[in-house]
């Protein structure tokens, strides 16, 4: 079923996919509709088409990534593009080259699309101003991770038929999470009611202004929720002490069966990965095939990224 009636020739106004904040409802619907077409293709025995034949895609990952990078790489290859994943460890960046210089160097090789992940918020925006091709943000600092939010929405729609009217709880390290921010924008846009749950030290200032209710009590935050999104504790971004110990965190904010009872009986468990079992999520719940859609998120991630590559590559 289509999310909204399939719109013919929806215009995407953006030249780049930098964040959910820049997208309109019809643009989001268009991307999700396109992604649905690729789900089936990805399950078939012959997965490759030549939609992007002759196009060059560069994956520029300044931060470690497993699923996002491989997902983008597969997505590009299945669409027939020539995909190059830059290995930052061996690149000139380690020799002190600036982001802009790297961008200009790559730009001179005439790529059609650059997929970038960077530890600094706003880096893809800067990059997009300097290159002639489309830029897709694969996660920047703690700002946005648009394709993750889009694949989360697609997963929810696949299971629940819609996002509109659902109650969604996003739990954990909201402060350092780009996934949380992109999901807050997207789920609000699609008509869901969004709760965020975190200890006070991991709640960003004025988060309510983004259109969410903030809770420090997990059970209250999960009350009657249809979707429970868990986030990873981003220890690598933490400077100084935010929490007493992983044990205390798990006790109060880890997703365990006794806390999950507050949510609806058919509530789905999501996690953008990578998971810290026993820190933010009970290991059995993570593997519960009736509740957890974590693997489905990864699966649909490829379809969403194929849609994004198709749409934004064709734009330029």
């Amino acid at each position: 079923m289509a999310i909204i009636k399939k719109l013919k020739a929806v215009k995407i106004n953006q030249n780049h996919l930098l964040g959910i904040q820049d997208l309109s409802f019809s643009e989001v619907s268009y991307i999700l509709d396109e992604a649905r077409d690729f789900i089936k293709l990805n399950k078939s025995s012959s997965k490759k088409i030549d939609l992007l034949r002759g196009k060059t895609q560069i994956n520029l990952f300044f931060e470690p990534s497993t699923r996002t990078q491989s997902s983008f790489e597969l997505a590009g290859k299945r669409l027939g593009a020539d995909v190059m994943s830059m290995n930052i460890v061996n690149s000139a960046i380690k020799k002190g080259e600036t982001l802009i210089d790297t961008a200009m160097t790559l730009n001179a090789m005439h790529p059609d699309i650059i997929v970038v992940r960077h530890q600094d918020s706003g880096a893809p925006n800067l990059l997009s101003q300097k290159v002639n091709c489309a830029v897709i943000n694969a996660g920047d600092g703690r700002r946005e991770h648009p394709t993750q939010a889009l694949l989360d929405a697609l997963t929810i729609i696949n299971r629940k038929g819609k996002v509109q009217g659902l109650k969604i709880a996003i739990c954990g390290d909201i402060l350092h999470s780009r996934v949380a921010r992109s999901n807050i924008y997207l789920m609000n846009m699609l008509g869901a009611e969004v709760n965020v749950v975190a200890p006070k030290t991991l709640l960003p200032k004025s988060i309510e202004r983004l259109g969410v209710k903030a809770f420090t009590d997990m059970k209250k935050g999960l009350d009657q929720c249809d979707i429970v999104m868990m986030l990873r504790l981003q220890n690598e971004r933490m400077r100084g002490s935010f929490l007493p110990s992983p044990r205390e965190y798990y006790e109060y904010y880890g997703l365990t069966p006794d806390k999950l009872v507050a949510a609806k009986k058919d509530a789905l468990i999501m996690h953008p990965g990578p998971m810290n079992r026993g820190v933010e999520i009970d290991t059995n719940l993570a593997d519960d095939i009736n509740r957890s859609v974590i693997r489905e998120q990864v699966e649909l991630g490829v379809a969403v990224r194929m849609a994004c590559l198709k749409i934004f590559c064709k734009k330029n």
Partner: peptide
């Protein structure tokens, strides 16, 4: 204020930048 780039508030949250409280 260490590591802060901007006033702590809605804008710092939206931009994903570390705020100065």
């Amino acid at each position: 204020s260490e590591g802060g780039l901007i006033n702590d508030g809605e804008i710092s949250t939206r931009l994903g930048l570390q705020g100065i409280p």
